[in-house]
Amino acid sequence: MLSFRLLTIPILLVLTIIISLYAQSSPSPVELIRKRNETIQKILETAGETVDAATKEKLKNIINDLIDFHELSRLALGKYWKERTEQEKKEFVDVFRTLIRNSSVKKLEIYRADRIEYLPSEINGDKAAVTTIAYKGNKSVEIIYKMHRVNGQWKVYDMVIDGLSTARNYRDTFYKQIAKSSYQEMYSKLKKRVEEK
């Protein structure tokens, strides 16, 4: 019995060291955002003012790789999420992802900032918030990346741009549309939009 107790302490110690080493090896939320932004900035610098289709495709991947579209969809649909079947949920996430990916390369100006300031991330268990302030000329835009850990990886589930929550904004739009017609009609509109592109 005593020998078992004596063994537990070193085992726990070793486990703590392993966990802390693992935690140190995965990049922090702020590092992830910084690396992503720097990569985008470098691509844009090389591309110049006009960005060709191939570069846009590359940018779409980099910009959206960190986004957890499943969680964003869940938040955006709000109360209507639970009412959806698994199949509907999957279809919605796919359409929503495509639309966001397409629109993400329309507003690249935010990445052409003169300087981006990264504030220390606020980590609370499996949730984190990274605040960045992008400066361009005499203007600045604050973006808060709301993140959570999915399978040990930090993913963005909402972005608050100068106080405007992306998830909430989509939710307002979807609620309005569903109230006006139905979920099905709204989904058709989204699908139609995907096909237009």
Partner: peptide, 13 residues
């Protein structure tokens, strides 16, 4: 403007 642009990009504005 940002909010309307987001909805517009989805084809919902």
């Amino acid at each position: 403007l940002r909010s309307v642009s987001m909805s517009f990009d989805l084809g919902l504005a």
